[in-house]
């Protein structure tokens, strides 16, 4: 820490707050000031709207083969704004419906990660030395697996079971089963360090029980980094799904997914190069938007870290 503040920027951190703000309110204010993060948030909200109302927005059925009316591999026209693919399907409609897959994989996989990782991480932090050690060595093992390979293996394993929701759920589960490790370690580390802090000691001195300390003091205070890490997990999951769909072991066809569209478009890259570019850009934009939101959240929730 520097000694006496000099510049105006440094002074800001030293200023005596006139009124008390909660961490979350301060974070919200800092987040609102972050222009890149707000633009990204807008992009994501727009995508969510598109995904939810895909059937209403899309001009055609994404799987309808309009060979009679439109023909295959057509350039953009007034009836098909982004043209048609090899099977005469409307590219724009497929792109719109593809957002459903990418967003649900990104968001639901991280919710699943949260549900798996927080109990395990908290349990490791608060249990005996031996249990903690065993759990952490187990996470070491999962780390030793190359993540994408493990996801691919799990996807093959899970597809044999009758999972409600089919291959989409299978992929979400496969990603969550590999991804939870990082968050579990994070939660454990957070709790171990928070446990030693004075406010927990104070709570304990006032007679708070273990459960109360856990849910009122430890869990809410460890949430910030977890939220940031989950947000960064979203683009990683979107990448995993689209990579799997790209090599042909993702969501089952004919479901429109951006990864599969990149692959299909690539097969016609010399005839219609843009066919593979649209979904590629959609993936990149979505991932970038989530990354910027993650950056913004990190800066907002932890102003000391730069």
């Amino acid at each position: 820490m520097a000694g006496v503040p000099g510049t105006a920027a440094e002074l800001e951190g030293w200023a005596v707050p006139t009124e008390h703000h909660s961490l979350w309110r301060d974070a919200l204010r800092r987040m609102l000031r972050n222009r890149l993060a707000m633009v990204s948030l807008f992009v994501v909200i727009a995508l969510v709207v598109v995904a939810v109302f895909a059937s209403q927005i899309a001009p055609y059925d994404p799987n309808a083969q309009n060979c009679g009316t439109a023909g295959a591999l057509k350039d953009p026209s007034s009836s098909h704004w982004l043209g048609t693919d090899q099977s005469c399907r409307d590219v724009l409609s497929r792109l719109i419906h593809g957002s459903r897959v990418s967003l649900s994989v990104g968001i639901f996989s991280q919710i699943a990660v949260l549900l798996i990782a927080v109990p395990i991480g908290a349990f490791a932090a608060l249990s005996s030395r031996l249990t903690d050690n065993l759990l952490m060595r187990f996470t070491d093992l999962i780390y030793a697996f190359p993540a994408l390979l493990a996801i691919i293996l799990l996807r093959r394993v899970l597809e044999g079971y009758d999972v409600p929701g089919g291959s989409l759920t299978v992929i979400i589960l496969a990603i969550a089963l590999v991804d939870w490790v990082t968050i579990a370690r994070l939660v454990r580390g957070q709790m171990l360090s928070l446990r030693e802090r004075d406010f927990v000691l104070a709570a304990r001195a006032m007679g708070a029980r273990g459960w109360r300390i856990m849910f009122v003091h430890l869990l809410p205070n460890s949430l910030g980094p977890v939220i940031v890490s989950l947000t960064f997990g979203v683009p990683v999951a979107i990448f995993a799904e689209s990579a799997l769909s790209f090599i042909g072991i993702g969501v089952d066809p004919p479901t429109a997914t951006w990864g599969a569209m990149v692959d299909q478009g690539y097969r016609a890259v010399f005839a219609v190069p843009m066919l593979t570019v649209y979904p590629a850009l959609a993936i990149a934009t979505t991932m970038m938007a989530f990354t910027f939101i993650g950056d913004g959240l990190r800066d907002a929730l932890d102003p000391h870290q730069r």
Binding site: P235, F239, S242, A243, F246, V262, Y266, V269, P273, T276, V277, A280, L281, I283, A284, M287, M288, F290, T291, F292
Partner: peptide
């Protein structure tokens, strides 16, 4: 750095090929 870190490799590969 920001662009490179959030563009999946196969997307970048495809764009470079095109």
């Amino acid at each position: 750095a920001t662009f490179g870190a959030s563009t999946p490799s196969f997307v970048l590969g495809i764009l470079l090929i095109v």
